[in-house]
């Protein structure tokens, strides 16, 4: 099943297409873990059928943007230092 994601940006230009980005995204999938975050390498596209997962965007003060994207999560990035895991 396709996943639903959300990202907060100050400026939509942060979501450059056609290259790998590292973003903090949160899951919008229903269930106990909804709204939890992870850091991930991703690729985004304004073509909604480009990737299976969808991405919605919120701006600096939580406003929902009307721009929608599709997203591919390439891999999770763990920034938490090893000693704390």
């Amino acid at each position: 099943m396709a996943n639903k994601w959300e990202v907060f940006v100050m400026d939509l230009a942060e979501l450059a297409e056609g290259k790998e980005l590292e973003l903090t995204i949160r899951t919008l999938n229903d269930g106990l873990h909804k709204y939890t975050y992870q850091r991930a390498k991703v690729e985004v596209s304004s073509k909604l059928d480009q990737f299976a997962d969808s991405l919605q965007v919120r701006l600096g003060r939580g406003q929902l943007s009307d721009r929608k994207f599709s997203i591919r999560v390439i891999e999770r990035v763990e920034r938490l230092p090893e000693r704390y895991r």
């Binding site: 907060f8 903090t24 975050y37 600096g60 003060r61 939580g62 920034r79 938490l80 230092p81 704390y84």
Partner: peptide
Amino acid sequence: GMILPDYKVEEGPFGEYTGYRTSPR
């Protein structure tokens, strides 16, 4: 738990006592 001295994650924005979401993420 433990407050970590050398690792930070994002917080906010959040509805605040002033009646606005003001402080930046």
